[in-house]
């Protein structure tokens, strides 16, 4: 079930079977090195446990579900708001750019800037789509659990 050294942790945590525990205690009685290791790791465990985490007050649990539900609800709100805002912004920019582009009275540099913005957006859009569709799919680390 476990390697020899790991039995120390199993012993300290009370996770050995009665037979394993008896065998371990026999080893412990005749092996001073093993006894020192048990004492050392017991001390590590006890020191670690002196660091207790503060309890949450009960009011936290009373409000916990509401807080979680609000996140779910607000997420939907944010998605709708963001999608709508993007469409409106894009439409507004499109009409503005079209009006400026088609107005021969506008200076050439303004029309060139509009062309540059449109070209830049198109390049960025294609780049992101390509990354999502191709690069991310072939990423050899995508299944790696952190």
């Amino acid at each position: 079930m476990s390697d020899e050294r790991s039995r120390v942790s199993g012993y300290l945590d009370g996770e050995l079977s009665p037979e394993e525990r008896a065998a371990f205690e026999r080893d412990l009685a005749r092996d001073p090195h093993l006894a020192r290791e048990v004492a050392s790791l017991r001390a590590v465990r006890e020191v670690t446990r002196t660091m207790k985490l503060k309890e949450f007050p009960d009011v936290v649990w009373d409000r916990y579900w509401n807080g979680t539900y609000n996140r779910l609800e607000r997420r939907i709100g944010w998605v709708l708001l963001s999608a709508g805002a993007i469409v409106l912004l894009a439409a507004g920019l499109y009409h503005l750019a079209l009006a400026l582009w088609q107005d021969a009275a506008e200076p050439w540099w303004l029309r060139a800037a509009i062309g540059a913005v449109c070209a830049g957006l198109a390049i960025l859009f294609v780049s992101v789509i390509r990354e999502r569709l191709f690069t991310a799919r072939r990423d050899p680390y995508r299944e790696v659990k952190r």
Partner: peptide, 19 residues
Amino acid sequence: PGTVMSRLHQARLRLRERL
């Protein structure tokens, strides 16, 4: 389940070093 004891033990050994 058999992996827990060895992983925990290794973690404790490394914690001891860090301590």
